[in-house]
């Protein structure tokens, strides 16, 4: 359990705002690469759109991993979870904005496409589900709403994660492994929350 101790000690030393700085810097840097370099190849619109979307899915995985990591291995990264959640929202927002403004290039067509294409409808529902979560990701909202109502609202993370992965699976041409891996992992992480559990045994294990 040496490793766990080391991770927990390191995590205590890193302030949570580093997540925001690194996340926002990364988001802007990717935009810079797409706009002013050839890093994303000769068609950067779709490439950037996909990159933001995929990072959004990766951040969902990371955010949903925090609880099982604590319960299973005693690794405590809980203080970063809100920042990771907020960055997830911003990457998905960037994904949507690249899609709407740089790819489709017409808000009217964005609407008709989202209504007409099921994979876009599903992606859009996932994005919209994240909006109230982003808005209430502050101490004021937790206090104002009360912990139970806040937690109930943030349950929306689970459908948002699964619908986001489904959006990716649905988009793929041919038999592609990667989107299916995201879907399987995210379903697994959500299913973990609903596993049959013996609470006293779990507590004993995490203390050990």
């Amino acid at each position: 359990m040496d490793i766990v101790g080391t991770i927990n000690t390191a995590a205590r030393k890193v302030p949570t705002w580093t997540i925001y700085i690194v996340g926002a810097g990364w988001l802007v840097y990717l935009f810079y690469l797409a706009a002013f370099t050839r890093a994303f190849g000769p068609e950067p619109i779709n490439a950037l759109e996909r990159e933001y979307g995929e990072i959004g899915l990766q951040l969902l995985v990371v955010g949903l991993l925090i609880t099982p990591l604590r319960e299973t291995f005693g690794i405590s990264l809980i203080k970063f979870r809100r920042a990771i959640g907020v960055m997830t929202f911003f990457f998905i927002l960037a994904h949507f904005l690249v899609f709407a403004i740089l790819d489709v290039q017409s808000l009217e067509r964005v609407w008709t496409e989202v209504v007409k294409r099921p994979y876009l409808t599903v992606g859009m529902i996932s994005f919209v589900a994240l909006i109230p979560l982003a808005i209430t990701s502050n101490n004021y909202s937790v206090r104002k709403m009360g912990a139970i109502a806040w937690r109930r609202l943030h349950w929306l993370t689970y459908p948002a994660a699964i619908l986001g992965a489904l959006h990716y699976v649905w988009l793929a041409k041919g038999f592609q492994i990667e989107p299916l891996v995201y879907l399987a992992v995210l379903i697994g992480l959500v299913a973990y929350r609903y596993r049959p559990k013996n609470r006293s045994k779990n507590r004993a294990m995490s203390r050990a």
Binding site: A34, A35, P42, E43, P44, I45, N46, L48, L102, D103, V104, Q105, R109, E113, R117, Y119, W170, L171
Partner: peptide, 19 residues
């Protein structure tokens, strides 16, 4: 069935290219 074919992205036009 999954997307419109009425217009397309142009390869080589950069991030701000018009459809």
């Amino acid at each position: 069935p999954r997307w419109s074919q009425s217009s397309h992205r142009v390869i080589g036009g950069g991030l701000f290219a018009s459809r």
